[in-house]
Design a protein around this nucleic acid. Structure first.
Length: 287
DNA sequence: CTCAGCTCCTGCGGGC
DNA sequence: TGCCCGCAGGAGCTGA
C-alpha cells in the first residue's frame, strides 16, 4: 500500500485532472470507508473548484474554493484511476475512454470537461473527510503527525532527540507517524538496510553518527522511490490510468532467503515478525 | 507516557 | 479443481 512516495506519485498524476477544475458531480457509492463520510459529502463537493492538490504524509489534500479541504487516505488497498483526461501532454498517459465500473469503486469524481477520478478500495481501510481549510492542521488525522521526512523539520538532531531513551525497536519507532510522517513497512525496511541498522535494535541505542546516516538514507530512499514513480507516470504501460502502483526494485523487502545486495556482504535476507508486521533485513550487515 | 497486541476488510497465492 | 491458511504497503484502540 501506498506509503509517502506512492501517495506523492498519485498526487502528481491526479493534479492535471483536478487542479483548477470543477467537480461537476461527486458520486458517492457507499456511505463510508473506514469511517462514515462527512454529512452530505457528495453535495458539498459538487460544483466546487479544486484550487490545489497537496499532500501531507500519506494524506492527499484537495483545497476547494469553498473554504473546505477534502482529505483523502488510501489505506492499504486504495487506488486512484484517472480516465477521460482531455489532451494529455504526454501521449498514452491516461485512458481517454472511461473503464467499466469495478467492484469497490466507492467514490467517483466527475470533473467538468469529462475527466473522471475513481477511488477504489477493496479493504476499505481508506478514509475521506471534509474540513475547513483554515483549520486543516488541527484536524485529528493531521494534528499529531511528525515532520515530513523530506522537509526541513526532519534532521539528525530531531530524530536523535525523539529516539532517546526509547526501548522499542527502531523498526517500530520509524513506523510511528508521530515521530516521522509518511514511512511505512516497506521503506522502513529499505532505509534500515541502507543504514546498516538492525530493525531489532532499541531505538534509543543508536549512536549519533549512525542516526545522521539514518536520516540521510531515509531521505534518499524516499526520493529514489518518488523518482521511480515519476518514471511510471511517463511510462506507456501506465496507460490504464491507475496511479501510484508500479514496479519497484526493493533491496530487502519481500526478498527472504535472497543474497544480501550490499556490496561485500555475503549475508542472506531474513524475515521476522515485529509488532505484527514483517521485517526484512540482513543480519550480516545490519547491527 | 510507553508499548504489545488486536482489530477493521477483502483478495490472492501456496500447499494439500 | 477446490478448500484452507497465511499474508498484505495502515493505523486506531485497548489495556497492562
Amino acid at each position: 500500500m501506498p506509503e509517502l512516495p506512492e501517495v506523492e506519485t498519485v498526487r502528481r498524476g491526479l493534479a492535471p485532472a483536478m487542479e483548477g477544475a470543477v467537480i461537476a458531480r461527486a458520486e458517492v457509492r457507499r456511505p463510508d470507508l473506514r469511517w462514515p463520510f462527512p454529512p452530505r459529502m457528495g453535495a458539498r463537493l459538487t460544483g466546487a473548484r479544486v484550487l490545489r492538490l497537496g499532500r501531507r504524509s500519506k494524506y492527499l489534500l484537495a483545497d476547494l474554493d469553498r473554504g473546505e479541504t477534502l482529505i483523502m487516505h488510501l489505506g492499504m488497498s486504495g487506488r486512484m484511476v484517472v480516465s477521460g483526461l482531455a489532451a494529455p501532454h504526454v501521449p498514452g498517459r491516461f485512458h481517454h475512454d472511461h473503464p467499466a465500473p469495478e467492484r469497490h469503486d466507492h467514490v467517483v469524481l466527475h470533473m467538468e470537461g469529462g475527466a473522471r477520478i475513481t477511488f477504489n478500495d477493496a479493504r476499505r481501510f481508506g478514509a475521506m473527510d471534509l474540513t475547513a481549510t483554515d483549520a486543516l492542521e488541527a484536524h485529528s488525522w493531521l494534528a499529531t503527525l511528525g515532520p515530513e521526512p523530506l522537509g526541513n523539520g526532519f534532521h539528525a538532531g530531531y530524530l536523535h532527540a525523539r529516539l532517546a531513551g526509547r526501548r522499542m525497536p527502531v523498526k517500530a519507532a520509524l513506523l510511528d507517524q508521530r515521530i516521522v510522517a509518511g514511512l511505512g513497512n516497506i521503506y522502513v525496511c529499505e532505509a534500515l538496510h541502507r543504514a546498516g541498522i538492525s530493525p531489532k535494535r532499541a531505538a534509543g541505542r543508536i549512536s549519533a553518527g549512525r542516526i545522521e546516516r539514518l536520516t540521510e538514507v531515509i531521505r534518499a530512499t524516499l526520493r529514489d522511490a518518488i523518482d521511480a514513480g515519476g518514471s511510471s507516470l511517463r511510462d506507456y504501460r501506465q496507460a490504464d490510468g491507475e496511479l501510484g502502483y508500479f514496479q519497484h526494485s526493493f533491496r530487502v523487502y519481500g526478498r527472504e532467503g535472497a543474497p544480501c545486495p550490499a556490496p561485500g556482504c555475503s549475508g542472506t535476507v531474513r524475515r521476522a515478525v515485529q509488532s505484527g508486521r514483517s521485517s526484512f533485513w540482513c543480519p550480516g550487515c545490519q547491527r
